[in-house]
Amino acid sequence: MDGLPSEEEQEMTTETATVDVDVTVPDPQTASHSKELDSNFQTVGEVRVANARMTCTDVNVYYGDKHAIKHCNLDIGENQVIAMIGPSGCGKSTFLRCLNRMNDTIDICRVTGEIKLDQQDIYDKRLDVVPLRAQVGMVFQKPNPFPKSIYDNIAYGPRIHGLASSRAELDEIVERSLSKAGLWNEVKDRLDQPGNGLSGGQQQRLCIARTIAVEPEVILMDEPCSALDPIATAKVEELIDELRQNYTIAIVTHSMQQAARVSQRTAYFHLGSLVEVGETTQVFTNPQHKLTEDYITGRFG
C-alpha cells in the first residue's frame, strides 16, 4: 500500500484528460464547431409551412443563466413527422419539451417567445397545461412505465381525463391503443401483469400506446429508440410511420438514418440555435449550411 500501482496513475491521467477536452482545451478539429452562433443568426431554409399545427416564434429558453435555446422559429406541420437532429447538448430535447410545457417541472427553466398550438399561445399565463398535455402527448427517451399493470398503464390517461364512460369502452381504448402500438398480440394474455416486466422495446411501445390512449393531436418523441436494440427500433419506426396518418409528430433523434427514414422535415440544431430546416431529403442530400453539412457527413457530432 506504500507504493502506487502504475495502472492507477495511468487511469487518473486519462480521466482528467477526457474531462479537459470537453470543457476547456479545444481540439483543433472541432474548434469551429464548438463556437456558438451569433444571436442574430437567421435559420437557413423554410421555417414556415402551409398547414402548421404548431408555430414557434422567437423562442428562447434559459436554464438559470444559461441561454439554452436562442431565437428559434419553427413550424410543425399537420400529419407529418419532423425530426430534430444535432450534436449532444444542442438543445433539441429542451426545445421539444417546450412544446408541451414539460419544462415547467424544472424550477430554474424560463421560456420566452411564442409557441402557438392552433393559434393559441401555449405560454399564455391563463392557459391550462392539463388539456394542453392531453393534446400534445410525449414519449420519453427511457421507457418509463408506471409500476402498475399493463392495462392500468394504458388506462391511466383515459381514466383521469374521463375518456371512457364504461368499463367496456375503456377495454376498447386499451385494446385499440395497444394494437396501434403493435403490442396487442404480444401482451393481450397478460394485461394484468406489471408493465416493468416487459422487455425494453415492449416497454417503449407500451409508453407510446399509453400516450396515444389519450388521443393527443401532437406527439412529441424524445429519442424514443436510444435505449432500444435494432429490432425494437425498427418496430417503433414502423409504428411512427403509421401514426403519421392521424397524428402530428415531432421526434428528437441521434440517429441520422432514423431521421431520414421516418421524417418528412428535418431541423438541425447547433448549440442552442436552429441552423437549418427543410424537407428531409433536401437536408440530407443538399444541406445549405456548412455546419449541417459537416454534421451530416460525420465530421463531428
Partner: peptide
C-alpha cells in the same frame, strides 16, 4: 420516486394531485 414517472404522468395531462395520488404515492 424517479422524475421520469412524474414526467410520464404530466405528459399524459395528469394534474399535480392526480400524479401524486395515482403515480407517486403508489410507487
Amino acid at each position: 420516486v424517479p422524475q421520469s414517472l412524474r414526467d410520464a404522468a404530466y405528459a399524459l395531462g395528469a394534474t399535480r394531485s392526480e400524479t401524486i395520488r395515482q403515480v407517486v404515492l403508489p410507487a
